[in-house]
Computed example of a mutant assay.
Amino acid sequence: MQDELVFYTNPMSRGRIVRWMLEELGQPYRTEVVAFGPEMKAAGYLAINPMGKVPAIRHGDTVVTEAAAICAYLADAFPQAGLAPPAGDRLRGAYYRWLFFGAGPLEAASVNKALGVEVPPERKGMVGYGSMEDVVGTLDAALSSANHLVGDRFTAADLYVGAQLGWLMQFGVMEKRPAFERFVASLSARPAAVRARGIDDALLPPKA
């Protein structure tokens, strides 16, 4: 029997990235919605993720947390979906680069900006991302010259970075550069992305 794939999420979280990834796979999965607050910090869920946060997946006996790691794991667990360069392909280098760029410099710089944390110029060398300007410039250069981050086709690296960019621009954390808007618009129109948004939107609590 195929190992069951269980997805732990909340529609108001980074779980939306993983939902999109799961829809791209086209594999059956079961969703467990975990409420923020006591439920997410309860012993039952802490056994899945001791950090007490979502998203997480359980694939048979394997548990994976952290959105970028989940995307990387799923791409390799279901290679037929074609969401990662095959093992041994030299494009794996670029693939890992951009996945970790999204999970590292892009995430850290954006969170600091959103919180109003400014790194003094003389301390720039102490932070992994350097400055927000460095992060934006690096990503802009990559997306201004290509439609995808890895080779000439869509991968989980595009999905992860594109999902972050869309969210950051929506909330004004990232400036809306033409290359970013073009990239996000193209990815957002993918059928799996549309399905994922519909599923998660339906799980949102009703507006007061």
Rank of each mutant, 00 (worst) to 15 (best):
N112P: 05
A163M: 14
E32F: 12
A109N: 01
G151K: 08
V34L: 12
D76L: 07
N112H: 15
T62E: 10
A47D: 09
L187P: 02
D152L: 01
R190F: 00
A75M: 08
H148F: 15
T138N: 08
T65F: 04
I57M: 02
H59T: 03
D158L: 05
A141W: 04
K41G: 07
C71I: 13
A35P: 04
S188K: 13
A56L: 05
W20V: 11
L187C: 01
G15P: 07
T31F: 01
V135G: 09
G162N: 02
Q170H: 15
E107N: 11
P191M: 01
A108E: 14
F101C: 06
E23W: 03
R153L: 04
L149F: 08
A163S: 15
A193H: 10
K41M: 13
Y129E: 03
V173R: 12
G166Y: 07
G151P: 05
Y129R: 01
M40G: 08
A75T: 13
P120H: 09
P206G: 13
R14F: 10
G26F: 09
K124R: 15
A109S: 14
K53F: 02
E39F: 06
V119E: 06
G52K: 04
A84K: 04
G104E: 09
V119K: 08
M12L: 13
F154R: 06
V33P: 03
K176T: 13
A114W: 02
